[in-house]
Amino acid sequence: MLAIHYDSSFDGFLSVVFEIYRQHLDVGDIVPVRPYAAEGAAAPDLFLQPFRVETDEESARRLRRAILNMAGEDILSLLDCAFRSEEPGIEMKIFAYLRKLFAGDSRGYARNPTSDEMLPLFTVARSVRREQGFMLGAVRFGKAPDGMYISAIEPRYNVVDMLAPHFRSRFPNGRWAVVDVHRRYGVCYEGGQVQLVSVDDPEAIAGVERSDEFARMWKSYYDSMAIKERLNPELLKRCLPVRYWKHLTERQVDASSLTIGGRNSEKRGADGLGGANLPSAVARSRSLALGHAGV
């Protein structure tokens, strides 16, 4: 039995499935190798033999086409969404579905949302899409000195590049970047082009969204909107889970963090550039761009 390692991209996963079929591999587990720590990742299984599969775009493309033919476009996007959840073991769940799909035993299996393999994928994909919709509202841009609007987020699932189409159509003439601080990459929009960028120093970005007068006005407006006779902390936590408060301007408790973002202030002072190193953090990483994203 093999534990197959791959580079944690969706194309990489499709290449793994392709190789499993091509080489008739006996697979025990599929393990992503991520550049960041994932939530709830399991310890490696000692009884499985490690095996590495490199991402191959051609085999991923062929498998995509096969899924399109067998199931349809919406199922492919559903699998993509479920994959983005990065839950431990999600690869094996998708693989179980694909195996039954390609076995072709029962008619209509591909589109049955209540089958044993599909239902968990369906519910996971639903929560990934919900997270994406939530993030459309929870992004808080801050204006960097060079006029770019920058936002740091920490979504539970890997949805940051799914946000790009929305903000591109909303601010078509602007320049903006949304960065996933935890996964150390983001999307950047400039001159009509959306690019995926990797970010080396996410800490530099984290404070920019709460550093101006409008941020302070927004915070005080937010505080005045609550009706004190109806205060309901439990409802608040259900609608707006505590894990997201860190990057929301209006949920910052102390006034000092609203002036200049916490510890970044020292670093900025040392530069003698004020906040000018913030966009340069993005600019530097833009040179490391992963290439044009198809978003």
Partner: peptide
């Protein structure tokens, strides 16, 4: 709505909640 030419801003059919006040009501 789509963003008008030369301007910005769009309308999302489903609506988007941006935050929730301390009484649990959404602020959009």
């Amino acid at each position: 709505r789509c963003a008008p030419k030369g301007g910005f801003g769009s309308g999302c059919e489903a609506g988007i909640c941006h935050t929730w006040a301390a009484d649990g009501r959404c602020i959009s």
